[in-house]
Amino acid sequence: MGDVALHNGIFQPDPARQVAFRCNVCGVQNVCSGDRIGRETASCDGCGSTVRMRSIIHLLSTALWGRSMPLPEFPQDKGIVGKGLSDWIGYADRLAEKFSYTNTFYHQEPRLDIENVTEEQKGTCDFLISTDVFEHTLGPALKAFVGAYELLKPGGSLIFTVPFTLDAETVEHYPQLTDFTIATLGGKYFVIGQTAAGAYELYHEPVFHGGPGQTLEMRVFCRKAVEAHLRDAGFTEVLVLERSEPECGVLLTENWSLPILARKPL
Results as ranks from 00 to 15, higher is better:
residue 110 P to R: 05
residue 129 I to D: 04
residue 160 F to Q: 05
residue 122 K to R: 15
residue 175 P to V: 07
residue 176 Q to L: 11
residue 135 E to M: 11
residue 148 A to S: 14
residue 119 E to L: 10
residue 120 E to F: 01
residue 164 F to W: 15
residue 109 E to I: 06
residue 190 F to N: 02
residue 106 Y to H: 12
residue 184 T to S: 14
residue 141 A to P: 10
residue 181 T to C: 12
residue 198 G to Q: 12
residue 191 V to T: 04
residue 154 P to M: 12
residue 179 D to I: 04
residue 142 L to Q: 13
residue 122 K to P: 00
residue 181 T to E: 13
residue 129 I to P: 01
residue 130 S to D: 10
residue 197 A to L: 14
residue 187 G to T: 08
residue 109 E to Y: 09
residue 141 A to L: 05
residue 147 G to H: 03
residue 140 P to G: 01
residue 113 D to C: 08
residue 109 E to L: 12
residue 159 I to Q: 02
residue 101 Y to E: 04
residue 102 T to W: 05
residue 158 L to F: 04
residue 171 V to M: 06
residue 122 K to H: 00
residue 121 Q to E: 15
residue 107 H to I: 06
residue 171 V to K: 11
residue 196 A to P: 06
residue 117 V to E: 06
residue 126 D to T: 08
residue 157 S to Q: 10
residue 157 S to C: 14
residue 96 A to H: 08
residue 140 P to A: 03
residue 159 I to F: 05
residue 137 T to C: 14
residue 195 T to N: 15
residue 111 R to S: 13
residue 204 H to C: 00
residue 96 A to Y: 00
residue 97 E to F: 00
residue 168 A to T: 11
residue 120 E to N: 06
residue 165 T to Y: 07
residue 195 T to D: 13
residue 167 D to K: 13
residue 191 V to N: 02
residue 172 E to G: 02
residue 186 G to A: 06
residue 116 N to K: 12
residue 196 A to T: 13
residue 109 E to V: 09
residue 186 G to M: 04
residue 203 Y to M: 07
residue 96 A to V: 02
residue 134 F to T: 13
residue 114 I to E: 01
residue 93 D to G: 10
residue 142 L to A: 07
residue 116 N to L: 06
residue 155 G to N: 11
residue 119 E to K: 09
residue 203 Y to V: 02
residue 183 A to M: 09
residue 190 F to L: 10
residue 93 D to C: 05
residue 102 T to C: 10
residue 206 P to G: 05
residue 148 A to K: 06
residue 157 S to E: 08
residue 159 I to M: 04
residue 99 F to V: 07
residue 191 V to W: 03
residue 131 T to V: 13
residue 104 T to Y: 06
residue 184 T to L: 00
residue 144 A to H: 07
residue 159 I to T: 05
residue 142 L to S: 08
residue 120 E to Q: 12
residue 151 L to N: 02
residue 125 C to R: 11
residue 110 P to Y: 09
residue 176 Q to Y: 05
residue 174 Y to A: 04
residue 193 G to C: 10
residue 95 L to G: 03
residue 179 D to S: 15
residue 194 Q to I: 10
residue 157 S to K: 12
residue 160 F to I: 04
residue 185 L to A: 12
residue 120 E to W: 00
residue 157 S to A: 15
residue 134 F to D: 07
residue 124 T to N: 00
residue 135 E to P: 07
residue 141 A to T: 03
residue 99 F to Y: 14
residue 134 F to Q: 08
residue 132 D to F: 07
